[in-house]
Design a protein around this nucleic acid. Structure first.
Length: 142
DNA sequence: ATTCTTACA
DNA sequence: TGTAAGAA
């Protein structure tokens, strides 16, 4: 569809700066990833990737897709097969989500602790100012 | 030029 | 697993 790779890359860099929209046609995405178009199709069929589709049905790869392709390249070079790559990426996404959740919970805990200390200060009265009435029978018990 | 299917190293 | 050829 578009043979001008530089033109495509420029558009991708520009539009991608705003949002990670699908902009690259498969031939350009493959070129940028150092792979063959067929390889990208195989990855998609195996569930490693899911580029958006145009109304006509052709694939459009986003900057995020390219980043994923680079990650796939790292893992395959490390010796993982496609299924291994798929599971690693899946777990990495899950880990990132859990870490984000942990941070949110930590922030909530920090706010709750802060609130508790506020109550403490409001209820406490310095001993030097306290007026205490104690029966002599209670003092002996101490 | 892209899609999918089929075949090969 | 990745690549190539075929046809639409």
């Amino acid at each position: 569809m578009v043979r001008d790779i530089e033109g495509q890359a420029r558009r991708g860099a520009f539009e991608g700066a705003a949002i990670g929209r699908g902009v690259y046609v498969i031939s350009v995405a493959a070129e940028l990833a150092g792979m063959h178009p067929q390889t990208l199709r195989v990855y998609e069929r195996r569930g490693l990737l899911e580029p958006t589709r145009t109304g006509g049905g052709s694939r459009r790869y986003s900057e995020h897709d390219l980043a994923r392709l680079r990650r796939i390249a790292e893992l395959t070079d490390a010796g993982l097969n496609i299924e291994g790559v798929r599971r690693v990426i899946e777990l990495e996404a899950e880990l990132a989500e859990l870490r984000a959740e942990l941070e949110r919970e930590r922030e909530l805990a920090r706010l709750r602790e802060k609130e508790i200390h506020r109550h403490y200060r409001r209820d406490l009265v310095p001993l030097s100012q306290a007026v205490v009435h104690v029966k002599s029978s209670q003092i002996r018990r101490l």
